[in-house]
Amino acid sequence: MHKSLSEALEIAVKTDPGMVRGHNEDAVFANPHLGLAILADGMGGYNAGEVASGMATTLLSGEIEEGLILKGAWEVEPDGEPYANALLRERIATANSAIYHAAQSQPQYAGMGTTLVLALFADNVVTVAHIGDSRLYRLRGEEFVRVTRDHSLLQEQLDSGMLTPEQARLSMNKNLVTRALGVDPEVEPEIRSYPVLPGDIFLLCSDGLNDMVEDEEIGLTLQTLSANLELAATQLIQMANDNGGRDNVSVILVKVLRDFAAPRGWWSRFLAWLK
């Protein structure tokens, strides 16, 4: 029987300005009932980054919720594309346009933009959309892997062999992204889907975490504290701050508690909708 997503997913959300920045330009949103988690790391002068990331999470959460009322994320479009992919691509384009036009029309917001990492859970699958260098990781058993690949100058230098991983750790170019939401009239998000298993833990984070804490340490912390997501999220932010906290740091942890296969057939969907 189909279980409510909120019974299948446990979510913990934490954001912190860090030890150096005066204000927080990260924005986070999570809704276990929708199976949706969104994290954005804003950029721009004064409070413009804060505006861009806030617009991104507010617009996307509302637009995606509206889209999910119309159709289940697991359903398929007439052209064969999963509805989840089409929905995310369309709504991200709408948010990009809104942020871009705000930046164009208001001088104090000129040049603002934001990274984005978004996870939508449905039918034992997570659909991930990302732009920039905010990341999504997965812990499955003892295996901790980075799922997203940064849209950044540093990642391009690594891919081309210009830098070794050791050199990349010391690079001064860590924060130069090659793609961002709201900077250009159009942007192409990377959207991919992955099967999900009970017990999986997904981590969405801004670079304020992974620039300060090695992936191996992040993975070990999640393994050790997997039974307490709130404590794990608090501990990850504390580790980033203990190591210097040079940037805002945000984390969203999503733990898959059980199977959440989608209802099949119109009657099952109607019953699920009534719940």
Rank of each mutant, 00 (worst) to 15 (best):
V187C: 09
L176H: 03
K174Q: 13
E217A: 15
L176C: 04
N173P: 00
R149E: 15
L204R: 03
T164D: 06
T178M: 09
D215M: 09
D184F: 04
S206A: 09
V147N: 04
V213Y: 00
R146E: 15
L154E: 00
V183E: 12
D211V: 08
N175P: 01
Q157V: 01
S171P: 04
Q155L: 10
S171A: 15
T148C: 08
P195W: 04
K174L: 07
N210T: 14
N210S: 15
V177D: 03
I131E: 00
D150Q: 09
E186L: 04
S206P: 05
L204D: 01
L154T: 00
V183F: 09
E190R: 06
C205K: 03
D207G: 06
L139T: 02
E156W: 02
S134C: 10
L170G: 06
T148E: 07
A168V: 08
S193V: 04
P185W: 12
G219I: 02
P198V: 15
S152K: 03
L158Q: 05
I131V: 14
E143T: 15
H151K: 06
F202Q: 06
T148I: 05
M172E: 12
L170E: 15
R138A: 12
D207T: 10
G132V: 05
Y194W: 05
Y194D: 03
S193I: 02
S134R: 02
L197I: 01
V145C: 08
L204T: 03
L163T: 03
L220P: 00
R135G: 10
V147T: 13
H151E: 11
N173S: 15
T221E: 10
S171G: 08
E188H: 07
D211M: 07
L170M: 14
R138H: 06
L154F: 03
N210A: 07
K174A: 10
R179E: 12
P189F: 02
S171N: 10
A180H: 02
R140V: 08
L204H: 05
P198L: 14
L136K: 04
S193G: 14
S206R: 02
D215V: 07
P195R: 10
G182T: 08
V183Q: 13
R138L: 10
M162I: 08
L181N: 01
G141I: 04
A168F: 02
E217D: 15
D133H: 11
E142Y: 04
L153E: 14
V177F: 00
F144A: 14
N210I: 01
M212D: 10
V177N: 06
I201R: 02
V187R: 01
R140A: 13
Y194T: 00
R192A: 14
G132Q: 05
G219K: 03
G141H: 05
N173R: 11
L220Q: 12
S206M: 10
E143N: 13
L139A: 05
P189S: 05
T178C: 08
L203E: 14
Y137S: 04
G199Y: 03
R192C: 07
G161I: 13
I131M: 01
T221N: 11
